[in-house]
Design a protein around this nucleic acid. Structure first.
Lengths: 261, 261
DNA sequence: ACCTGAACACCGTTCAAGT
DNA sequence: ACCTGAACACCGTTCAAGT
C-alpha cells in the first residue's frame, strides 16, 4: 500500500510501484567526490537477497539488512523510501537476466526450456514465489518476458495470444515453485502406511470422503519428494503445452470450458 | 516452522501441522458447567476470518483478534498453541464446505464447475491465496478434493492421474485468485497511451526488448480489469482441460515437454 | 481453568539531532 | 549529504501472577 511519493522523472503526474524509478534509473554517478557513503543501494539490495536466500521472505527485513551492514536501521531510509521498494529491487536482482536458452526446434520446446530456466531461478531464490504477483515492469522481469515472447513468436499465435500464453506459463512456474517450497518444508511425510495417513484416512472415511480415504489408504496421497515435484511440474508443463497447441487461434470461451474431448 | 508440540490423540509419536488435531477434533463438549469461558476457539477463528476479509492476511494477527474480542492478546494462548494454528483453522473455515455442483454432462464440465466454485470461494476470502501451499489435510480442504475426484472419476484417468489432475486444477484456481487480487490492487493502470506505458516502452526499447516495447506501445500490455481477469482464468481453464484430455493416460514425460503440435 | 500484567525480542517508520 | 539516537505503534510469545 505504501507507494513512492516521488513523481517519476520524465513521467509527470504518475505514481509508480515503489522502487520502480530506481530500478530503471542510471546506476548512480560513480565519481561523486563528496564524503564517501557507507551504504549503497546495491549493497543494501544484495544483502536483502542474501537474507531471503538464507531465511526466506520473513528474513528480508530492514532491521536484518542494517544489522548485517553494521548500520542503524533508519540509515536505510537515506537510500530507500520504504521496505516495499527494497522488495521490488530485491526481486529484480534475484530474478536476474534471463538465462540463454538452447536452440529449440519449435515454439513448444522453446517455451518448455524457458519454463525450466525460470523454475531454476525460483529454486535458487525460493522466496520469489512468496512475493505478490505483479505485471512485469522491472528490467529483468521484462527481459524474461521478452525471451518467452521470442519463442512464442514462432508458434501460431497472434500477439494478444502470445501474452496470454506467457501469463499462463509464468503462473505455472510460479505455482510449481511455491508448491515445491511449501511441500518440501512440511513434516511429517504422509507416507504409505504412516500412522498419520491412517488417522487421516479414518477421519476422512468417517465423514464420507470415500475417494480421499482410498487415496490415503493406498499411499497415493503423500508428500511429494523433490523427485516427484519435478514429475508434477513436467506433467503440468506437458498439459499446458498440449492444451495451448490444441486451442491455438481459437480464442477464449467465456465463463468456463467447452468439452475438450 | 512453529509446530504443535502435542502428539495427536490416537496417533502416537507424530507431530502435526499446528491446529490439525483441533480442526478434526469434536466440537468441544458443549455442556460444561464450570465458569463460562469468555473465549471460544470458534469465536477466535471467526474473528480471524473477518479480519482477513477486511484487511488481508496482514490483518490477521493475534493482537487484532484479541482487540476485537475485548481481551488481552495472550489470553488467546489458552485456546491456541500459536499463530500458525490460528491460520490453519481460519483457512479451513474460510474454505468452507464445497459448493454443490450443478449436474455436468462430462468430467471436463464437472471439473470446470468445480474450479469456478472454488474460485468464488477464493474471491470471497482473497487472503486464502496468500497462504502457503499445503497438501489438503483439513476437513473442508479434503472435502473439496473429494468433490473434484468425484468428477474426474468419470473421465479416462486412473486414480494416480486423478490426483495429478486435481493438483493442477487446484493450482490454477489458486494462481488465478492470487493474480486477480494482486493485479486489482495495482495502481496506476498501464492503459493504452498512458505516460507510464510510454515511459516503460521507451525504457524497454532502449534495452533491446523489442517485443515487450511493441506490446506496451500497442496497449496490449495493460492491467487486466476484473472482466479481463475472468477471461484469462477461463482461457487458462480451457487450456488445462484441453491438455488434460489430450494427454489422458499417456503418463508423464520426464524433465520437460514433447512437441505437442 | 481462564484471563491479566509485565516483559522480551522483534518489526517499519518518523523526527530531531549530530558530523 | 549521510548517519545515529530516541521514539512510536505494532508484532508473537513467555512467565508470573491473579481469580
Amino acid at each position: 500500500v505504501a507507494r513512492s511519493a516521488d513523481p517519476t522523472p520524465g513521467v509527470p503526474g504518475t505514481r509508480l510501484p515503489p522502487g520502480l524509478h530506481r530500478v530503471w534509473g542510471v546506476p548512480a554517478p560513480p565519481a561523486t567526490r563528496g564524503p564517501k557513503a557507507a551504504l549503497t543501494v546495491d549493497a543494501i539490495v544484495a544483502t536483502a537477497v542474501e537474507l531471503g536466500d538464507a531465511h526466506g521472505l520473513a528474513g528480508v527485513s530492514l532491521t536484518g539488512v542494517a544489522r548485517r551492514l553494521g548500520v542503524a536501521t533508519n540509515a536505510l531510509y537515506r537510500h530507500l523510501d520504504s521496505k516495499a521498494e527494497l522488495v521490488v529491487l530485491a526481486r529484480d536482482r534475484a530474478l536476474g537476466a534471463p538465462a540463454p536458452l538452447p536452440a529449440a526446434p519449435g515454439w513448444a520446446e522453446g517455451a518448455a526450456a524457458w519454463a525450466l530456466a525460470l523454475r531454476a531461478r525460483y529454486a535458487a531464490h525460493p522466496w520469489l514465489a512468496d512475493l505478490p504477483v505483479r505485471l512485469p515492469v522491472t528490467p529483468h522481469a521484462l527481459a524474461w518476458l521478452e525471451a518467452l515472447l521470442a519463442q512464442l513468436q514462432r508458434g501460431p499465435f497472434d500477439e494478444r495470444e502470445q501474452l496470454r500464453v506467457a501469463a499462463l506459463l509464468d503462473a505455472h512456474v510460479r505455482a510449481g515453485a511455491a508448491a515445491a517450497r511449501d511441500l518440501a518444508a512440511l513434516d511429517p511425510p504422509l507416507a504409505a502406511g504412516s500412522p498419520l495417513a491412517g488417522a487421516l484416512g479414518e477421519a476422512a472415511a468417517g465423514r464420507g470422503l470415500a475417494r480421499v480415504a482410498t487415496a490415503l489408504a493406498a499411499g497415493r496421497y503423500r508428500e511429494p519428494a523433490d523427485r516427484r515435484l519435478d514429475d508434477e511440474f513436467g506433467y503440468g508443463l506437458d498439459v499446458l503445452l498440449a492444451g495451448i497447441a490444441a486451442r491455438a487461434g481459437r480464442g477464449t470461451v467465456h465463463g468456463g470450458a467447452r468439452h475438450p474431448g
